[in-house]
């Protein structure tokens, strides 16, 4: 089979064709590795986990932003496979793009747990109470592997470089939707902005390309709703509280191990 790759060496860019033998289970990543290891050591691309968890190998395959490690060649059903670097990102070399702005936008939405009493975040004595149903209400948005496919697919990103983008906004919602978080007000300044949630026109292409089912488009619409409710109706969120643990008088002795011999351990420090 033939694969056509968009290359860039820092000054000029060109298309380069490679002829490769593909096996039934091969992914596009397998093909790229074969090329780099057997034909052309200069081909630059990122990859790591090879199982769709690390987010390294995002690229545009036959026009669609995809993870190379999860795209099986035979499923593409084309004679020629066309591979390009992610759209909407500056290219550094071949398929390697600059993620500096991308990770900066993620950080800008304060993607961490915020509590009105910050000491609760440093207390290791128990967990917050969260029911399985509450857990399911936000966990989908925590699947984000930061591969950048959604931002590459987003038509608004192409027009407005200051737009926070589906990745960052979905991650803002991941925390806003978390019953343990109390930080919507702290995030309003960046989210409730012309380059924030309101710039999204709900094209939905982010959700179409997301390899992990995060559904950023849905997250952004929910975020709009939460922001409106807060702005218009001053609505307050009911957040989780830390669990109260039962007092344990004596550990039941059902241990299958032999009795330990006498040894004095130093005190174990706890945070």
């Amino acid at each position: 089979m033939k694969i056509r790759i968009r290359r860039f060496d820092g000054s000029k860019s060109w298309w380069q064709d490679y002829e490769v033998e593909a096996k039934e289970r091969d992914t596009v990543l397998d093909i790229l590795l074969k090329i780099r290891e057997r034909q052309d050591h200069t081909l630059a691309f990122r990859h790591s986990c090879q199982m769709g968890s690390c987010g390294s190998c995002g690229m545009v395959i036959n026009g669609k932003p995809s993870l190379a490690c999860q795209t099986r060649v035979l499923e593409l059903k084309t004679e020629l496979i066309r591979v390009e670097p992610l759209y909407n990102f500056p290219v550094l070399r071949d398929l390697v793009v600059d993620l500096t702005g991308f990770v900066g936008k993620h950080r800008a939405v304060k993607p961490w747990m915020i509590r009105r009493n910050p000491e609760e975040l440093e207390d290791a004595s128990s967990e917050f109470v969260v029911t399985p149903q509450q857990n399911m209400s936000f966990v989908q948005f925590d699947y984000c592997i930061m591969c950048g496919l959604c931002d590459a697919a987003c038509p608004t990103m192409a027009l407005d470089p200051l737009f926070l983008g589906p990745q960052a906004l979905a991650q803002a919602y991941r925390y806003v939707a978390d019953p343990r978080d109390e930080g919507l007000d702290d995030r309003l300044e960046v989210l409730d902005d012309a380059h924030g949630v309101w710039r999204c026109h709900f094209a939905g292409s982010c959700s179409y390309v997301c390899p992990k089912g995060v559904d950023p488009a849905k997250a952004i619409q929910f975020l709009k709703k939460d922001i409106l409710k807060r702005r218009l109706f001053r609505s307050k969120k009911e957040s989780s509280s830390p669990a109260t643990l039962p007092k344990v008088e004596k550990v039941p002795d059902n241990a299958p191990h032999p009795p330990p011999f006498d040894y004095k351990f130093e005190e174990v420090s706890q945070a």
Binding site: L121, E127, F138, V139, D178
Partner: peptide, 11 residues
């Protein structure tokens, strides 16, 4: 601690 920082442990 990491629960308080956001890990969605199954419940």
């Amino acid at each position: 601690l990491i629960e308080r920082w956001g890990v969605p442990w199954n419940r």
